[in-house]
């Protein structure tokens, strides 16, 4: 396998895709590091599924390009290294479990039958059961068995936990994480449930209105931000303290006399927050993502800077 530190698993350059209704993704650029678990976050219609479809070659970009370990997603090389679990977790309902596994074996150049059977057996799913008779959780397990047995380097999961009950969610995420621990694969995973991502993901890609709004190492991003709580300064617009020049205000709101704000400081000390009228702390990943999701207009951090200055 390639060096997981240095390599980029998924790279997009000025990536755009237009549908009849308009642009689903536009001018997206990002590098997702290999060997990491990236959370793909964004409101409905932000382009998450479109991005997955572009990364798997199910869809061709209208402009720009996307590369899987440097290869075009439609090449055999990229297909061999990528596994994708679509949001609707499609399977052939008329097939038995054994036939579904055979499907994987027949359609892939490398196939690890032992892994597939281990994952299926661990879920106590009989091999002769029809897929159509299985529960949603069992189907997800079969879909993961297909994905793992392919021995991918990049695993793309579009809302893998939707429609699953809480116990099955832990079970499914546990399966994925065990595979990560075992083989060091790169995972990109979207979810609406941000709290599910907190303990799982160590990298973030946040989309809004078809563009990249935030990306980077999860820990670093949290440390680059500051949550500010205190008495709103009535003499200033928005109640924010002075001395915030050059600091991005991601979100701020005043309730009564209290001001809460999320600032992007990029690790610089902020003078205004030093006095004891203000309580500052590092936001949790969930807090951070929520703040970015709430700050509606799809502006890049650099244009935020201009607005705040």
């Amino acid at each position: 396998m390639t060096d997981p530190i240095a390599a980029t698993a998924l790279r997009a350059t000025r990536l755009g895709r237009r549908f009849r209704k308009g642009w689903a993704l536009r001018d997206c650029g990002f590098d997702l590091p290999a060997g990491r678990i990236t959370a793909l976050v964004g409101p409905n219609g932000a382009g998450k599924s479109t991005l997955f479809h572009l990364a798997t070659g199910l869809l061709r970009p209208t402009e720009g390009e996307i590369r899987v370990f440097g290869a075009d997603p439609v090449t055999a090389e990229a297909r061999d290294r990528t596994a994708f679990l679509s949001q609707d977790k499609p399977l052939y309902t008329g097939f038995t479990v054994a036939e579904t596994l055979r499907f994987g074996r027949e359609l892939n150049r490398s196939w690890d039958a032992a892994t597939a059977e281990r994952v299926v057996r661990a879920g106590n799913i009989p091999l002769d059961a029809r897929v159509g008779t299985l529960s949603q959780g069992q189907r997800t397990r079969i879909a993961l068995a297909l994905a793992f047995a392919k021995r991918p380097d990049l695993l793309l999961l579009d809302e893998p936990l939707a429609d699953l009950d809480p116990l099955v969610r832990i079970e499914v995420m546990g399966l994925v994480m065990a595979e990560v621990a075992d083989r060091g694969i790169t995972v990109v995973m979207s979810s609406h449930v941000l709290s599910e991502l907190e303990n799982v993901c160590d990298h973030v890609l946040l989309l809004a209105h078809g563009g990249v709004r935030l990306q980077g190492d999860a820990q670093q991003l949290c440390e680059d931000h500051l949550r500010l709580t205190g008495l709103a300064d009535p003499s200033r617009k928005g109640g924010l303290p002075s001395g915030l020049d050059g600091v991005d205000v991601v979100e701020s709101s005043v309730t009564g006399r209290q001001l809460t704000a999320l600032l992007r400081t990029d690790g610089r000390p902020v003078d205004a927050c030093a006095d004891d009228r203000w309580v500052t702390d590092i936001p949790s990943l969930e807090d951070l993502l929520l703040a970015y999701l709430r700050s509606a207009p799809a502006a890049t951090p650099s244009s935020d800077k201009e607005a705040a200055a």
Binding site: R169, G174, V176, M177, A178, V180, A181, V200, D202
Partner: peptide, 16 residues
Amino acid sequence: TAKDVVEATAINPNTV
């Protein structure tokens, strides 16, 4: 092992 832990807890192996 990290694998055993994450399989049961569904957390990132790097955390372990």
